[in-house]
């Protein structure tokens, strides 16, 4: 089981790399907390006006807002995870080196990004969420099973999030400049993940559309699992479905891209 150890080591490396930026992590916690407070108040006002908007009550809306802040960097909702490094490596051509590594390119980057995500969940997510739970009333489950189910949904969300960003990063094999891709990813990410407003509170038929897109697997699904709004198995099926589709698409694109590199000679 040598290759399992390899990817575990890669993931640990991703974790450690982000763990070294202590001041940046502290600053991020502060920023997420400030934005959480602002967002929570706007949600409170909104749910004051429409008490059962999207099927959430006020405490659920508050919970959702803090969850969004807690998972914001974990799920790299507006980008900025391992795909940033990957893009840079493609641009500089260093990717050629990665291709000769005795490891699978996609798995390698997935492991590295998961390491980062786990660190950011612990380092940047826990404190804002706890802050929210202390100062606002939230709809949190009392039983451990739901928490475990939630963590599984978060893990699947991490994989879907990576799947989206990996596809975006591979575009760099065909494009000269990363800005268009990065910005598109950012806009879609923030909007379709429900960072601005829970997807179930979107007006119809818009709401139905965004809830069927892969971004819904990122924040909405774990939130709904945590608050008992959806059965975990239903959420997992949705997330896993998208994860498989995205990772498979990533593989296809990757093999097309590597052929390109080989043809060009690096």
């Amino acid at each position: 089981m040598g290759s399992g150890r390899l990817y575990a080591a890669v993931a640990a490396g991703g974790f450690r790399r982000y763990a070294t930026y202590r001041a940046a992590t502290a600053a991020g916690v502060f920023t997420n907390t400030v934005f959480g407070i602002i967002l929570v108040y706007t949600y409170l006002a909104l749910w004051d006006e429409r008490p059962h908007l999207g099927g959430y009550d006020q405490t659920q809306a508050v919970t959702y807002a803090w969850l969004g802040q807690a998972l914001y960097s974990t799920l790299a909702i507006q980008g900025g995870g391992a795909e940033k490094d990957l893009m840079a490596r493609i641009r500089t051509g260093e990717i050629a080196v990665d291709l000769y590594r005795p490891a699978d390119l996609q798995l390698w980057w997935l492991a590295s990004d998961l390491g980062r995500a786990v660190f950011q969940m612990l380092g940047r997510g826990v404190i804002p969420f706890t802050f929210g739970a202390l100062f606002f009333s939230m709809a949190l489950p009392q039983d451990i099973t739901t928490w475990v189910a939630f963590l599984v949904a978060v893990a699947l969300a991490m994989i879907v999030s990576f799947g989206i960003r990996y596809l975006a990063a591979l575009m760099m094999f065909w494009l000269m400049d990363d800005r268009g891709v990065t910005q598109t990813m950012m806009i879609l990410g923030i909007f379709c993940s429900g960072m601005t407003l829970p997807l179930n509170a979107f007006p119809d038929p818009f709401g139905d559309i965004v809830q069927s897109l892969p971004w819904a697997a990122q924040l909405q699904m774990p939130a709904n699992v945590l608050m008992g709004e959806v059965s975990p198995w239903h959420a997992y099926a949705f997330q896993a479905g998208w994860a498989v589709v995205l990772l498979a698409a990533g593989r296809l694109l990757q093999s097309a891209a590597t052929r390109r590199v080989v043809v060009q000679g690096g």
Binding site: A23, A24, A26, T31
Partner: peptide, 9 residues
């Protein structure tokens, strides 16, 4: 130096 994000808040 690493705390640029504080100013974003």
């Amino acid at each position: 130096q690493d705390a640029a994000e504080v100013q974003n808040a």
